[in-house]
């Protein structure tokens, strides 16, 4: 059986496509890049990752321009069919700007960029994204963003991950990551693709990529 094909999106200004592709590979999937101007996902795509970065240099609003590109039409159709989508950092912002996830990402309460290793608490064990971990279990995954404070109605989404301890960015309800009510579209500000190897300090990000491929 061939490996599960995962489309890794690239917009001008995307930065984390290589590490996201490596994480897909490390989980046993087959990463294929898809570009902003493509009208369709690569043939045989089973899941989509929207990696982090500064698509279009954050011009207008983070994620705003990327959300209106042709490839996002294809991602919408994929999600409507129940296909899995994982948006990381700028990918989360793009998903919110696209309407695939509720709410918006506002500038951090400190108004500055923050890069920090964070403990994330599993807030909902009922989605596929945390691999059966119990509520309250903790994942160590770094975050790094300027516009990471999620603002929205938690009732419109499933809050999958919350920052443990103090709220680092002013997010409503300490939200770090949410999925849609259907559970197939997941967005989070922390970077699971940078928590894949013991050498880099944590492997707790593997669970999200495993979920993407399951």
């Amino acid at each position: 059986m061939s490996a599960t094909r995962v489309a890794v999106l690239r917009f001008p200004g995307t930065l984390d496509h290589e590490s996201a592709a490596r994480a897909v590979e490390g989980t046993g999937g087959e990463p294929v890049y898809a570009h902003h101007e493509d009208a369709a996902l690569p043939a045989g795509t089973r899941a989509v990752v929207i990696p982090g970065g500064f698509s279009y240099g954050d011009h207008l609003r983070p994620g705003a321009l990327a959300s209106r590109t042709p490839i996002m039409g294809a991602v919408r159709a994929h999600a409507a069919d129940g296909g899995k989508v994982l948006g990381i950092c700028n990918g989360f912002q793009i998903l919110c700007e696209s309407g695939l996830l509720p709410g918006v990402l506002r500038p951090n309460a400190s108004l500055s960029f923050i890069c920090r290793q964070a403990d994330l608490q599993v807030a909902d064990s009922g989605t596929p994204w945390t691999g059966g971990r119990n509520e309250g279990e903790v994942l160590s995954i770094p975050f790094k963003h300027h516009d990471g404070a999620w603002f929205g109605d938690p009732g419109e989404a499933r809050v999958v991950l919350r920052y443990a301890g103090e709220n680092p960015n002013g997010s409503i309800d300490k939200v770090a990551g949410i999925s849609n009510l259907g559970g197939n579209v997941m967005g989070l500000m922390p970077h699971p693709e940078e928590a894949q190897e013991p050498l880099l300090g944590s492997v707790d990000g593997r669970v999200l990529f495993a979920a993407l491929l399951s």
Partner: peptide, 25 residues
């Protein structure tokens, strides 16, 4: 200072700022 910088992009950073030297694979 260094929390305002992305220390990790590329997923090769093994020793982050704050120690004696940064270590990158």
């Amino acid at each position: 200072v260094f929390e305002q910088y992305d220390q990790l992009v590329g997923a090769n950073t093994m020793r982050r700022p704050g120690g004696d030297a940064g270590v990158v694979r």
